[in-house]
Write a protein that binds this DNA or RNA. Structure first.
Lengths: 255, 255
DNA sequence: GGAACGCATTGATTTACATCAAACCATCCG
DNA sequence: CGGATGGTTTGATGTAAATCAATGCGTTCC
């Protein structure tokens, strides 16, 4: 599945800019790098039909590109990098509701406004579609609709797991669950198995906002896990999982 | 929309039983009471095609009818009553991930096993479909697929709100948000506006498991809200909202 | 009637995590 | 180089909510 034809848009490049001093973009040149993305669903032959609707956009680390509550004009397919999705309270408290990696769709909401914000964690490439053309697109490509339903169902399952984590798990259980999830995500087909080595693209602050904890608690918990021989905390964003079983026991709540 | 043709299955009744001493069921007689359900999507003319697939089931209060992790054989459409959906940890901690009211679909998961449990809060009626026939159903009724995607998107938005609540809100904010949600849910088109009177079908324990709190904290918080003149706590499951603005301020975190 | 049960309320105490605070350590940059 | 900056770690203290515990109050059922 990983050697499927890369999907080339044949139109002439056009540049657009996001935000002040923002990212430059061209028409999507390789809109699908993994079997889960748009192009693999609708097939390379259909691409010319999309070329005036889809634009590839490169978003630098830290830049937001969906604002919670803003009119929902576009619809995105992540093609590389990691995106954080979040909701915020008026006083600044934040909850990251998920991290979107290549293949994920953003902006499905039926509402006319985005229900969440989105920001690039590292350098991100997305394919951007106009939501106006969404209905036509779905009518023309039934497979896309099936794919979106599948994606939404998967996200719903992930959301339910996260609600269990946020509502009922302790700090240690949360961090253990997170690390295991990240490990599983990095072991998807097409990725070489990395022997427990993880490169988390997000900061401690992001992890804290994802797990409903503070930066300090995340840091302390990782230190404790290190002291227990469960993990190794490397420079920068590297973490190595030394004992999956120990983390499993923790994550399941069999303290 | 509320006076649409009721959708009659014309087949002869058949009885089935759920669990020991369980509920009796017939073929679905009125599978749609609200514009969101299956029958309103596919239309009364198509019903005969479904009559061998859909079975109406009546589930008594407290009875579980989906077990987390069990093979996902069926797919449900709630037609009356309230269902609680939950996930549990091995040691018994529970998180209710949502309450499903008439019109909601259950068991969409792409996985072969249910990702959550489901239990009737009060007396519940559901339309039950075999998941084997789901794919055919979707192929035959594109509108149903569009409807399911819409439903899944809405649930995703609700799930994100709940993650913000569970991860970042205080107990008071959680209870205030819950009461407002319940009020909005009871004010859907087709319902008479009830002047702040709510009849919550679920126990304090259910509310606690939904909000990631304990029974005691929910009870204390309601008592505190009563002392602040925000609500009136009636006998049984009745709660009257006396000041929506006060609850709004609380729920938004403008403490 | 009155035991037994489930559910709710209220009080006393404990605790896991947040908050406040300080130091550490890269990288960047004039 | 040396000082800012942004992220991380570690320590001391505070607190919101959990836990432990007792009481109340309808229902059900001998």
């Amino acid at each position: 599945m990983s050697d499927m034809p890369s999907c080339q848009f044949e139109s002439r490049p056009r540049r657009i800019v996001i935000g002040a001093g923002g990212a430059q973009t061209d028409f999507c040149t390789t809109c699908s790098v993994r079997p889960t993305s748009v192009c693999s669903v609708i097939g390379p032959d259909d691409i010319s039909r999309l070329s005036d609707a889809a634009v590839e956009t490169i978003i630098p680390p830290g830049r937001g590109f969906i604002e919670e509550g803003a009119p929902a004009t576009d619809f995105f397919n992540v093609t590389s990098g990691t995106v954080k999705l979040f909701k915020a309270l008026p006083d600044g408290r934040r909850q990251i509701t998920g991290f979107a990696s290549p293949g994920h769709f953003l902006g499905l909401a039926v509402s006319d406004n985005y229900a969440f914000g989105a920001e690039a964690v590292d350098t991100v490439r997305v394919c951007r579609f106009s939501r106006d053309k969404m209905a036509d697109l779905l009518d023309d490509f039934p497979k896309l609709e099936r794919r979106l339903l599948e994606e939404a169902s998967n996200e719903l399952v992930a959301a339910q797991n996260q609600m269990l984590l946020l509502g009922r798990k302790t700090a240690r259980e949360r961090v253990a669950s997170f690390l295991l999830d990240q490990m599983h995500a990095s072991q998807l087909p097409g990725q070489e198995s990395s022997g427990g080595r993880l490169h988390l693209p997000m900061t401690r602050g992001d992890i804290a906002d994802y797990l409903g904890l503070t930066i300090e608690t995340v840091s302390r918990t990782l230190s404790w896990m290190r002291s227990q021989g469960m993990i190794e905390v490397g420079k920068g964003y590297a973490i190595t999982i030394l004992s999956v079983p120990k983390l499993d026991v923790l994550a399941a709540g069999n303290t």
